[in-house]
Write a protein that binds this DNA or RNA. Structure first.
Lengths: 329, 329
DNA sequence: CGTCAGTGCGCAATCGTATGCGCAAATTGC
DNA sequence: GCAATTTGCGCATACGATTGCGCACTGACG
């Protein structure tokens, strides 16, 4: 059995409340120096560790923040790894720990929502689709929430300036004289991706590119190859500049090109988005946009902490991105 | 303010204990059907959600398990991503959530240890070095712990059969006639890596390979290139078959070879270890050993749950690995 | 009519800590 | 020497749930 504050009190013939006050350094409560020392010594000797549950229950504060995402953690999703690393960094600064909600199969929306508001955490980071019903439930609740990477309705968010990144890619692509374009988007909906796509479409339209020379293709996350090969199999009006929604998709495309002996960037230009993949991979250096996801997460922690502290926090915090020039454009 | 069980009781003129029993489906406590219905209806109407902290405090069970690792979560560490995905899967089956301990700068060993035993979690997954002082502290404590991927002294572990994987690699390498060997190990100590290295050294020794034809090189995790280039710069007795401790290191080596126009596998054979990196990367197919880290994590959850339930659990659970044949050997 | 089983529910302690308030003893002030 | 203050600490309750035990009432049965 763990040692409690009451054990210390009993041992010294004091009351539990006095022990508690000493251990918390309560200045308003006067205690003799000897008593203080005895309490501290005994606590050390008995290897006392306050019960965090009892403290949280009483204080109304757990020092735990949660992360909910509808995506899977795996090696394919290096984005989440970056976010997680950043959250860990940020949380460490504020002595917070991070609770990952593990949704079980057959859970309902209510189950999930309830698990997120049962008092175990002070605040929540959210990464999901804008139409996830959870978003509405959470924004209507008392919960402190910060959305990560993608803006969500009625919730504060920390994002990257995707639109600017996409603009830089297009400028560069146009400057090099490419004229037939494609954008590879995922099949699921992410606000940031849609923002990139919209920017891409708008700029090309503004520059007078005809609609049939600016195609958007939806790529399934698990099996990208089919779509990519169909794309490359086209003979005559195959796109010459393909902007991919993320680096992984770009790498898949590069591989497909290599297999068909299509020269990059001579015959086709390829660009990615994210820019955190290890450049030590035995791959060519991809032209991409670096999104500072670690910083995004760190910022998000700052905001959530301020939100929990009662401050108002800005609706959207957008971090700048930078173009990484490789040799695929 | 959240609704409590007392609120429901007050609303209905009942006692809080009756409300609690109904909501927990306590069969031994007889209650009229009408009362039961009224309680359930009111709970629904008031959108009641029991406070998890109070429940945990009383029940002595939090349904939270922790993960402690001394490594960073980031895109370079896809191993952790796999583990995390597996833990999430396993936890979901048992309605557990996962608490990531975020160590803050300047924390002492005691701080960390105390944070792990303050009652917030029922058990812990551990991934660290065998000489981490935390290991001894934890194995001496009452905490339920399962080590992940690497065996740790006096703690149950779930691992992969690295030795067998390494044996398969060596058999294949020898069969193809390579005669000068090197093993690339990381600079930090991981039990599983040392096991791979020992197997590698032992088998080569058994097969009569002279010691100077079986070299072990320690590679710094952050800057592998220097070591790799020194290795490749050697002219005459450069190794012809290099076994890397993981896939990332192997990919780095492949890249270094490509830059120096060294043909793989004609001039040098390269093998990896882990086998979960996306084969959609624009890289050649690496010969490697697939370690089922997701399954390892899922197994670990099963064991931890049984340990928490009071069952004795086996000291080491070793999962089989499989050789993935690429074209680099 | 007394008893006994069964029904329906509440009292109160407990988990371990935090904290407002009060009270006795010691000290000070005049 | 008496009041006023200060020192040093404990009582009791709260946080929100779980749970052993007991009590009142009802109906049945002999």
């Amino acid at each position: 059995m763990p040692v409690t504050a009451r054990d210390i009190a009993r041992e010294l013939g004091l009351s539990q409340s006095t022990v508690s006050r000493i251990l918390n350094g309560d200045e308003r409560h006067r205690v003799s120096v000897q008593t203080r020392e005895r309490i501290l010594a005994t606590a050390r000797r008995l290897d006392y560790q306050p019960n965090a549950l009892a403290q949280s229950l009483r204080r109304g504060r757990t020092n735990i923040v949660g992360l909910y995402t509808n995506h899977r953690y795996d090696a394919r999703n290096d984005f989440l790894a970056e976010i997680l690393g950043g959250l860990q960094l940020g949380c460490a600064c504020h002595h917070l720990d991070l609770l990952l909600h593990c949704g079980y199969a057959g859970r309902t929306l209510d189950d999930t929502f309830n698990a997120l508001r049962d008092g175990r955490m002070d605040g929540l980071f959210l990464h999901t689709a804008p139409d996830d019903p959870l978003v509405a439930r959470l924004s209507a609740s008392e919960m402190h929430v910060v959305a990560l990477a993608d803006a969500l309705p009625n919730l504060p968010a920390v994002t990257c300036d995707d639109a600017d990144g996409m603009r830089q890619i297009i400028d560069e692509t146009q400057a090099r004289g490419y004229r037939r374009f494609a954008f590879l988007a995922p099949q699921f909906v992410l606000a940031s991706v849609e923002r990139r796509r919209e920017t891409w479409e708008r700029i090309l339209r503004e520059q007078g590119v005809p609609p049939d020379a600016a195609r958007v293709l939806r790529v399934p996350i698990e099996d990208a190859n089919t779509v990519l090969e169909e794309l490359l199999a086209e003979r005559d009006d195959r796109p010459t500049a393909v902007a991919c929604w993320n680096d992984r998709t770009a790498y898949s495309l590069l591989r497909a090109c290599a297999e068909r002996s299509i020269r990059v960037p001579e015959e086709i230009a390829v660009t990615g988005f994210d820019g955190f993949l290890d450049d030590k991979l035995p791959a060519r250096r991809l032209t991409t946009v670096h999104c500072p996801w670690v910083d995004v997460a760190v910022q998000a922690v700052e905001l959530l902490v301020r939100g929990i502290g009662g401050e108002a926090i800005p609706a959207e915090t957008m971090l700048p991105v930078t173009l990484l020039s490789g040799d695929t454009l």
